[in-house]
Design a protein around this nucleic acid. Structure first.
Lengths: 371, 371
DNA sequence: GTTGGCACTCTCGAGCGTTGAGTGCTAACG
DNA sequence: CGTTAGCACTCAACGCTCGAGAGTGCCAAC
């Protein structure tokens, strides 16, 4: 009896490219699942016979062959050449991820171990992002990517002006999302206005207090609008603050933290280094992850992008499993893994999912002392 | 007449492993130089005949062969197999770098272009380190590494305590070298002491002023010693400051900026990705560059480490060309390139040298308004 | 000391069977 | 009608040989 595969949302949303609803018999499902899992494990095209002896499907190789032929006809499997075993297509992986995969929860033991590691480290420093990246990379044996939590739009929080020992003045700007950026004031601009009265810490404090009273929550354009005319200390500060805000806007994810690149180097599909070239380039430039942010803001949960589903050509041979963390309205970041399409999806999805919710929890309780 | 090669210091110091002084005839020098330059260009073992037609040495191939045999006997050349051309050994590159290379100065046009690019970018943000990395990578077609300028020992400069909108208190610490770190105060610790009097910005300012008066220039241990007993706001701040200083100490180069890794992926010697594995791992972990810092503090100038001269096994197939920038007593950083031993040394040394002196100049004039 | 000549070595790539895993098809079976 | 055993077929991978070519070392002559 052909029985249609249940689409099992499993608390995660997907790339949603081709939600092509494929009807498969139960046998076809088992075979597809077996092929995916064997291939992920061995990296060798899997044939009907080897499938037979690794999984206890109660049928003969001939039957499996015919199932495989069916699956190939629907575009879920393909063979590298005529007389080789089958390999899952991108679509095949998709179906596997959406309806054939078991176990969506991370093993409680692992959960505890991860949680413990996070308890050891300061949340403020970006050491904890590195930790997340390292855990991700280690547990999935893929490359991992973590971006710091940044608000989509940088907003003024609090400014502090500091007279330094060497005579320069430092402008420390706390953004509304809690991040801190700083820059020295342009000395020549300050000197120009200091002709009449020398500028000391008192003057700086006064200007800072004024800014703090007037600009709380404002974004870069508003700050620029409400800034005094040139020639004053206020204008120099305003210029600096505005420019800091703009810079924070531009570089939404200015730094991305990666780990485990060597893991994917080890995968046989990337044995010839040049295949990695494009991927590495994308990973280095941060623009790509900026594109991802809106998508993440719209739908929470774990996203999976498999091979050609990715709009970027260089990423056609890799899959991404990633999720946002943080609050959409406040600071939002993402974390995920990048590996060959032949990726241990269950493990990756579990780990990314757990880590994202854990980091959510940590960031929230830390931010709001929320309880 | 055998004429000994002049060791030409060229304003740069070297790995200084085996300053084995080798006496070479003028012909041998020319041949070695030609072999190195050809091989760097083509990546193909160079034979006597092909050498003949690319360079106008006024002799026959047989003569060159004999010279090559001599060079091989001294260990400056080697052949991959009996009937192949010659390839420079690590020692061969060393001799080339120390005495055979011409032109130690970067082309003035390039100098101007680089200087111009730097004028476009804020010195404070680490955008300018990225720029340096990008220039290095682009101009040498190797991977580049830049570390931020950090002082060897983090010292207290100035502290500022800020009451945030969400109720938390932020501790912003300006280090003596001008870097800024920050961390939220441990809320529970603060709450515990605030029983009697609520803590507002005024109280925070008072504590900060006290710290600034007492602790200028101190390192972590001193701060810890001179911190009040537990239970006060002072102690909470002191704890945070000390811990920030310690963290800055531990992570002397906590983040390293790299660029152009894909360049070295393109090199034929790394066509099989796994060879890069070890190198990438070293590049990712920052410990290695920490080891380099003392060396750099001792001797300024461009350093070259070729292949096996490197104490780290994973780096036996690559060369490093790097130099420090900044002031040894203040903040010190390094920049350099990493590529196959078959590297365009003259170009790399020129670029690294120029960039290091340029960044020195910029950082100095920016720091001290020095003129 | 240099050079032309020459025999020798060794890698590289093309060509070519052999092997074996894997397939598709078909005819028999329950 | 779905399942299965059997069989002919395909095709990458492997190992082999063999010639080409680049490069060498050596030696006798200049």
């Amino acid at each position: 009896m052909p029985e249609s595969a249940m689409i099992n949302e499993q608390n995660l949303s997907h790339g949603s490219r081709s939600r092509s609803r494929v009807d498969l018999t139960e046998r076809q499902q088992s075979v597809l699942r077996a092929v995916v899992e064997d291939y992920v494990l061995t990296a060798v095209p899997v044939g009907s016979k080897s499938l037979l002896q690794r999984h206890r499907l109660g049928v003969s190789s001939a039957t499996i062959r015919s199932a495989m032929a069916d699956l190939e006809a629907v575009g879920l499997l393909s063979q590298p050449h005529t007389s080789a075993g089958r390999v899952p297509s991108d679509l095949g992986y998709r179906v596997y991820v959406e309806s054939l995969m078991r176990e969506a929860q991370l093993d409680p033991t692992d959960q505890l171990m991860i949680r413990h590691q996070f308890s050891q480290v300061q949340l403020t420093s970006n050491e904890w992002l590195r930790l997340a990246a390292s855990i991700l990379a280690g547990s999935t044996r893929s490359a991992s990517v973590v971006t710091p939590a940044r608000s989509r739009r940088a907003r003024f929080g609090h400014v502090q002006l500091v007279q330094l020992a060497d005579g320069a003045r430092l402008c420390v700007l706390v953004l509304a999302d809690g991040n801190v950026v700083q820059r020295r004031l342009d000395r020549s601009a300050v000197d120009r206005v200091s002709g009449d009265t020398p500028i000391g810490q008192a003057e700086l404090d006064a200007v800072a207090a004024d800014f703090n009273a007037r600009l709380s929550g404002q974004a870069a354009p508003a700050v620029r609008r409400r800034t005094a005319k040139p020639g004053s200390l206020e204008s120099a500060v305003g210029e600096t603050v505005a420019s800091l805000l703009e810079e924070a806007d531009a570089a939404v994810v200015e730094e991305i933290i990666t780990d485990g690149i060597t893991n994917v180097l080890e995968q046989p599909e990337f044995a010839q280094g040049f295949k990695l070239r494009g991927v590495l380039e994308v990973l280095q430039r941060s623009d790509f992850f900026e594109q991802l942010i809106p998508l993440l803001a719209r739908r929470r949960g774990v996203h999976v992008i498999i091979g050609h589903e990715n709009s970027i050509d260089a990423m056609h041979d890799v899959s991404l499993v990633f999720a946002p963390y943080g609050q959409p309205d406040q600071a939002l970041g993402m974390l995920g893994v990048l590996g060959p399409t032949r990726m241990p999806y269950p493990r990756a999805i579990r780990t990314v999912g757990y880590l994202s919710s854990l980091m959510n929890e940590l960031i929230t309780s830390h931010h709001e002392h929320h309880d």
